[in-house]
Structure formats: structure tokens, C-alpha cells
């Protein structure tokens, strides 16, 4: 299963689903991480975690463990 965590800086993917629950899932949805949205990996923090991604015209930072809960479409 390909997740947001697998992207390298500069690569993009299309969101397929979210495996998070509760507050985190709600937060993802509120921040615009919905099915079909294009997400681009921007950069990785100096210590390797968290990561910064770009979607819907803004930058969002999240931890790798959280990025793992965002599933991307395989073929993208």
C-alpha cells in the first residue's frame, strides 16, 4: 500500500483514502486532505521527521507516522 510517507521531495500523489480515526481523521479532512486531492512532498525536516507537503495551494507539516495514514492511488 502506497502512502504519503513513501513520497520523496518533489514527488506527487493522489489521495485514495485515510486510515486515521477520530480527531486525526477529522483534522485531515478539515485541512483538505480528501479523496482525489493532489499532494506534493515538499521537504523533510532536518532531523528526518516531520515532513512538509503542499496541497490546495498551501503547505502543511505532519509527522511521518501521520503521513502513513494517508493512502495514495497506486498508479499515480
Amino acid at each position: 500500500m502506497k502512502t504519503l510517507n513513501n513520497l520523496k521531495p518533489g514527488q506527487s500523489g493522489v489521495v485514495e483514502s485515510i486510515t486515521a480515526e477520530g480527531a486525526l481523521k477529522r483534522h485531515f479532512l478539515d485541512m483538505g486532505i480528501t479523496k482525489g486531492v493532489v499532494v506534493t512532498m515538499e521537504r523533510i525536516a532536518p532531523f528526518g521527521d516531520p515532513v512538509a507537503v503542499r496541497l490546495r495551494g498551501y503547505s502543511l507539516s505532519l509527522r511521518r507516522a501521520e503521513a502513513k495514514k494517508i493512502v495514495l492511488e497506486e498508479h499515480a
Binding site: 486525526l24 485541512m31 502543511l60 507539516s61 505532519l62 501521520e66
Partner: peptide, 12 residues
């Protein structure tokens, strides 16, 4: 309690 994590906007 489970922290709501680190989903943070990097604003303009």
C-alpha cells in the same frame, strides 16, 4: 490522552 498529533500549517 492521545495527542492530536502534529498536523500544522506552515503559513505564508
Amino acid at each position: 490522552e492521545v495527542s492530536s498529533g502534529f498536523v500544522l500549517e506552515l503559513p505564508t
